[in-house]
Design a binder for these strands. Sequence first.
DNA 1: CTATATCCGGATAAAATATATCCAATTAAG
DNA 2: CTTAATTGGATATATTTTATCCGGATATAG
Lengths: 162, 162
Amino acid sequence: MQLGKGVEWTTHICTVLAILPDQAGISVDALAEFFEVPSAYLAKQMQLLRRAGIVASVRGKGGGYRLACAVDAISLLDIVNAIDGPSPAFRCTEIRQNGPCGLKRKDCTKPCEIAAAFSAAEQVYRDTLAAKSLASIMQEAAMNSSPEHLLGIAQWVGREAG
Amino acid sequence: MQLGKGVEWTTHICTVLAILPDQAGISVDALAEFFEVPSAYLAKQMQLLRRAGIVASVRGKGGGYRLACAVDAISLLDIVNAIDGPSPAFRCTEIRQNGPCGLKRKDCTKPCEIAAAFSAAEQVYRDTLAAKSLASIMQEAAMNSSPEHLLGIAQWVGREAG
DNA sequence: CTATATCCGGATAAAATATATCCAATTAAG
DNA sequence: CTTAATTGGATATATTTTATCCGGATATAG
């Protein structure tokens, strides 16, 4: 059970987009260079973010990506759902209905105990991610990083967005 | 991010092995028939369970599988770790060290805020699975199932275990 | 001792997923 | 109007996961 690299990449990228001036944008190539990741593949991930309404894009020369919402309106769950999809990790195939002792379909209105237990575990996982906003990540990063590092990032963003 | 079918299969199978008389065993073919799943692949999953110490096997004619522990000593997390592996879903590739504003490796002793947030979410997921024992699943199933159904399973197990 | 049932482990095939690439559509600037 | 920069979407490739098969080892029964 693995989460794609795109989740890591785009989460970091959102923290960079978050310090952009309003209306400005950064190109995929610039973002790919900033994190040294393959730009072609990153482009695909950014499109998934856009379709999910997390970022907005501007086409053509001078275009690029920016956040489409406030940082406290974007949670880690939003990003995971956008990149990795919202489908649950545990897939119940109703094997309790199979075989010599299989249950009738009409007797299976409620999920079985096993499916229910896995769903409950996934729910707390999703709840935890939903409770973590991009704003909270930014705040923690600001506290844990050196002022020089933060300044360096702000300057780079300023150059690329200018 | 998907959990393999083996997790669903082997969890159900553990609930069947749980009602075996002591020292008896059931063959992979019988279990595969009971749930109508491919026996070749199920055999692989059962070997993973055995290597994890969840079930024990007896070779040769009349052999088969049985639980290696008490039902309250087996959690859903044990089964997931055995079948799906214990590696975390979120893989941090330390891209904060990359690019023009990359951090030096020596300044990265603590995980970044993003990796920490995902780890925390996975931890509550694992904790929830660890808190759910096979015994608890069995008890819930006993309450929710009809006596006839439970009897049918017990009879089938009795026949197969000889 | 032979035949049969069963697990064991490695080799292999198929499917799904992750990764990478290309070209068309669009926009800004000169 | 032409050129360059950029996103958009479809398509190709690589990697991983999932599934199957087969020969060997082991144990039981006759």
